[in-house]
Amino acid sequence: MTVIATSRAATLLWVVLPYVAITTFVVGHVWRYRRDQFTWTTRSTQLLEARWLKIGGPLFHIGLLAVIGGHVIGILIPKAWTDSLGISENTYRIFSATMGTLAGVATLAGLAILIARRLLNHRIAATTRGWDVTVMVLLGFMVLTGMWNTSIHNLIQGGYDYRETVSPWFRGLFLLDPNASLMSGAAVPLSYQLHAIGGWLLILIWPFTRLVHAWSVPFAYLRRPPIVYRSRAPLDVRRGAGGVTSSSPTESSVHVQS
């Protein structure tokens, strides 16, 4: 393989793929939100099977939230910052490997339960669509490669400092300073590369799958009035007024848009 070919492949994988994924992610979400909110849902299967979901669902979701938190620390926060706080690479690695393993095990166990019930329970199987399978396969792949990186690499094989390569490459993408060479085969272990590619594929398909429900966490619920009223026509029109004259806050408090 020539140097040029390698660098072309690298550009494709570590620059083009991320930007294509990010673009699709953004445009896809806008498109879907505007065109097709009817399918924007968790597509919960709890009605069809509750016993295992009550274990698998929370285990997977909470584990995943912890995993995402770990990625924020490991990828978005530059190594220089933790260094300046006096956290040594070894301390960081042990912390990240332990916490990452815990979170990963929870996620993996939850996902395994969810996949198993989807395969074994005929009712759930009947509702499974192509995208569900794609998402499950991809998520499984991500969790497995991620666990490999965190647990096997870091705890058993002595570790790999991804904060020297993967993290700056990732941040560089968003600073419009992409550097494909940081992710070259010589520098980064294969499992890290696969994990990164899998991640971009997940971002790429995200807006077209049930994963969109992640953006619908209803925090606004905590602050809205309990009973929501909506009108077929605004109050001033029903009152027969030609134009709007005034509006009192007590009346408006019953109008809520989610």
């Binding site: 809205r224 009108s231 605004p234 109050l235 709007v244 509006s247 109008h255 809520v256 848009q257």
Partner: peptide
């Protein structure tokens, strides 16, 4: 702040 829309906006 509550995400409410006042009547002016509704109109």
């Amino acid at each position: 702040a509550e995400g409410d829309i006042d009547l002016v906006t509704l109109a």
